[in-house]
Design a protein around this nucleic acid. Structure first.
Lengths: 344, 344
DNA sequence: TGATCGCGTGTGAGCGCTCTCATGGCTTCG
DNA sequence: CGAAGCCATGAGAGCGCTCACACGCGATCA
């Protein structure tokens, strides 16, 4: 008789079975499983052995039913699906989230939401205790999700900030500061005819990066008329279109600040199409320091934001909030950094 | 008295509450919730109204406890975390999976696994009925996960195929065919001194793309000595290193087939560093048609595989298998397509 | 030495749901 | 007109777990 691995029965072993094998009660097994408060060494050993022998794993459904915890948190991405996962930004956030989660017992559920129906379904899902907490990403201005979720008493952390100014736990990059760094660099290298491809005005990132741009331009003593603005939606195509409009209406511009790297890539294309040299004729600065920035032609000067850390920080803040649901909303601002390559 | 939205009580309404309000039994409510087999129109209407009024949503934990279904499937990615989400391949698979899932009630759980401990934990998680099915991605040769999961009777679909030849439901791109297309193009455009940066030999994608490369070279009548092979791990850095070795040992090569776009990007760098012009001196073909291929300098000629569809197809196959656990393992092969840009 | 305490342990209720089975009203057929 | 059948419905058990609470034992104190 060689020792056999636990039989692969179709029926998973229950607490009851472990208790019987260990010669103790269900309650004692439960205590051991959940961190052994006040269990005698003998009982603890017996239970541990029985668990190992049976290959016992707690039934999560039964546990959730009574504890009302799920050991699951959800990352809700409110955006078109083709935008979401193609954008390296999301991949990085996800990586940070996963990394922070890997040291916990929590499972991450991804929810990609678009349209009112899906949104409401997600809200229901969250509201009825399917998850212990919510991470919210990519919100547009009038989104009711943050207030609905937190109003339902479910711990919530969002990326960015609410344009309404409502207090919500959040993590954000220093978008204003980052945009200022970009503009200061442009000005310092002699550019005077600035333009920007801003992000959507209904998103805090869009608003903040534009604000930083405007502030820095003003600080540099540039006339408002020398700071043209066109908006895009963070996709490359929108950046290209915006830059084309910029060039058509203001042929004298010598620098473009794009509110994302993807849009900056579009700007590069538009510039190339218009026969302008980068950076000789027009300097371009992006935002994100996403992977494509490196491979752009020319490699993109950009504002790096610690995206991965942003994801991790969101998790930490959520864990804190789950542990202590009271207390005021906190917001963490992550620093940005200018990465100078060849485009400016 | 204006109609009020359902009160945001901390306590979610139960089946019991709905039954009481509708004036029927729990069982009847349950029937309505689960697709109303044999419920009178009157009862159905009353229940529907009560559900709406209360904002009732079934408690998933309670339901799972008795049905032993979870309405959750898990996508397990067995890879280093920093590789996983940075790779556009994964983002695309994820997008396809999410898309296919969006028309179902299923939730997707992401599990990123590395090391034996995490792997075993994931195996336990899966084995004890936490999920209804498993999607497996990025497997190396000696991985026990596929056989463990399917051995435990949990429906499983993997991307790629098992090098052991064990029958498992799977979806794969036509890697052999794709590689052949690439080589045929190289040969057709006059290249004779071929080399390849292959993928890991312990992964089916690596093996298959190399096989396709070798086959096509043989078919073209090229001597085996003219088909140099170095391997990488699908990262850009590894591609660069492999290409450097290739150049050092075989300075006469005039074409490189890289088993992934990321590696092709590395090849491009190595070539540039060595002062070779692309495609004039050396032609380069990648594999994947990932986003960076477009922005490469020069834009990359590559073999496109329908990655998103691969994700969707995995879901479909898993759903089929969940519905009918019996029957032989099936494997779906997705076509590839050569996309000609400037690098070859 | 008897009352008191505290610790380790077991008992039992019940979380919210599904599912089997019994029941009673109605239709249908001989 | 009675027996048989069918359909909508309800009663009740139980999924596997946690969490009071009760209990009994040895140690401690007056």
């Amino acid at each position: 008789m060689t020792p056999e691995p636990p039989a692969r029965t179709r029926q998973a072993p229950t607490l009851e079975a472990v208790a019987e094998l260990a010669g103790v009660s269900r309650a004692t097994v439960s205590r051991v499983v959940n961190g052994s408060l006040r269990v005698s060494p003998a009982a603890h050993a017996a239970v541990t052995r029985a668990i190992a022998e049976l290959g016992y794993v707690p039934n999560q459904a039964a546990r959730s039913l009574v504890t009302r915890r799920t050991d699951t948190i959800v990352l809700i991405v409110h955006e078109r699906p083709d935008t979401v996962f193609a954008d390296p930004f999301f991949a990085s956030v996800l990586r940070g989230v996963n990394q922070a989660l890997s040291v916990t017992q929590l499972q991450l559920v991804l929810l990609q939401v678009q349209g009112d129906r899906q949104r409401d379904r997600a809200l229901r899902y969250v509201g009825n205790g399917h998850v212990d907490g919510v991470l919210l990403i990519s919100l547009h201005g009038d989104d009711i999700m943050p207030m609905s979720v937190s109003g339902a008493g479910v711990p919530l952390v969002m990326a960015g900030r609410l344009l309404t100014g409502d207090p919500v736990d959040s993590v954000d990059a220093d978008n204003v500061g980052g945009a200022r760094q970009a503009v200061r660099h442009l000005v310092a290298t002699g550019r005077r005819e600035l333009a920007t491809v801003a992000g959507p005005v209904d998103m805090s990132v869009g608003v903040d990066r534009l604000a930083g741009y405007a502030q820095a331009a003003r600080d540099a003593g540039l006339p408002a008329s020398a700071t043209r603005v066109e908006t895009g939606d963070f996709t490359e195509a929108s950046g290209q279109a915006a830059a084309a409009r910029l060039l058509a209406e203001h042929p004298t511009i010598d620098a473009v600040f794009a509110a994302s790297d993807l849009m900056a890539l579009g700007v590069l294309r538009a510039l190339r199409a218009a026969g302008r040299r980068v950076p000789d004729d027009v300097a371009v600065v992006g935002f994100d320091d996403a992977a494509p920035a490196v491979y752009a032609d020319p490699p993109l000067t950009t504002v790096r934001q610690p995206v991965e850390r942003l994801g991790a920080e969101m998790v930490h803040q959520l864990l804190r909030r789950i542990a202590d649901p009271t207390g005021d909303a906190a917001s963490v601002i992550l620093p940005t950094e200018l990465v100078i390559r060849s485009s400016a």
